[in-house]
Design a protein around this nucleic acid. Sequence first.
RNA 1: GGUCCCUUCGUCUAGCGGUUAGGAUAUCUGGUUUUCAUCCAGAAGAUCACGGGUUCGAAUCCCGUAGGGACCGCCA
Length: 442
Amino acid sequence: MSTVTRFAPSPTGLLHLGNIRTALINWLYAKNSGGKFILRIDDTDQERSKEEYISQIKYDLEWLGIDFDETFNQSSRFERYREEFEKLKSAGRIYACYETPDELERTRKLQMAAGGKQVYDRSALELSDQQKKDYELEGRKPHWRFLLQTERMRWNDLLKGEIDIDLTSLSDPVLFREDGVPLYTFCSAVDDIDFNITNVIRGDDHTSNTAVQIEIINALDKNKISFAHHALLKASSGDKLSKRDNVISIDSFREENIEPISILSLLSTIGTSKSIELKDSIQQIIDEFRLDTISTSPGRIETDVLKALNKKQVQKFEYDEVKTRLDKIDTNIDQKFWNTIKGNLDTVEDVAAWTDVVFKNNSFETEDKDYINLALELMPDEPWDDQTWTVWTNDIKERTGRKGRELFLPLRLAFTGLTHGPEMKLLIQLIGRNKILERTKN
RNA sequence: GGUCCCUUCGUCUAGCGGUUAGGAUAUCUGGUUUUCAUCCAGAAGAUCACGGGUUCGAAUCCCGUAGGGACCGCCA
């Protein structure tokens, strides 16, 4: 049977390095085994879910090159959840509860103070028909809980190994809210069955939840899903990754002109036993993917590494690959320009900083006037080639006796206004004789 | 408080009873580029969280302690 994986974000915030990693792992797992990848939007909570986040999530995935074979919103399947719910109800696995959130909160606090388990006490199970009727007359509506019957839930987690959860330490999950809205724990179980999901790979934050879900799945059908839980990523500060932390949102990286392949390269190697390096292509990442290289201990993300990877990618780019982007900055940027400058860039768009250096008619202050004037006297006529600079500076060297830094830095400074940059023998060809004269006029 | 998990160079990690504890990245040094970056060569960097036990022998197995993470919702 071919694999089916899914990524199920709730559209309540932007995608960041942490949750996109989960998406990537699921996608890679599917791709690597010739399976299917489904994007499921977990939007049952209509108050917190926002349409703009749905489109943002899809756009981010697309931008990164993570495509999906199928997508749907949980909000379109309320009827189906109701149907399955009725099934469980007639099987006696569901019971009505009438506590208000306040009452539940109070009980929890009491339990905490007493040092006991903070687990729902199932007092609704004792309710007589008359008591329920009284509640309804009071205007209370029931919410519905699933009766957990397993004491210990065990499964072989593809990443964490044998897991053994004490289900008595967990509350009976609420499946339907008082207002009739089904909750994630249930919807997810129904969907995973209906869409024939074979592998659920998700963050460690779902581990104990999985125990509950397996029991629900078993009550509906028979669980055939393999679960895998990877460790969560931490920020470089050591703090947890937050949806509100826009410093690491995919959106912010796109705005900083970080390449998708740089992000993908980082995400497919960080927190794994693989070398942290820039990958040539998405295909390479797919081919090299192995679930068992992913670590079970929480690692931290160093965003500097992402910048370094991106720099490498920029230097790899051939002119044709970035031509349209360069044209947007300045149509005068040609292949020679790009090849000369790209080694000095962190992002493709940083090239903008060099258009002035090459094209603009500005002049720079120089303290070494006599030296520069001598250099200009010796400046060869055009056309210039790769040898011009060497010939020229050799002349200057002979006439002045200068060498090394003393010889070259004043020239660079006078011609470009900068103390660093691409090789001068290439750069002067871009700038040209006229502009050099212009810049050193006064 | 309960439940589950984690702890090896700065960082990400390999390691499954006998290794000079390996790699990647970052750092430093030298060379190349007469700059910066790249590239090449090399160096430094880990009392394997701590304590105890099992064993001829423990990073590796067991117990405890400490630290970290996750969850304990009518969120997902």
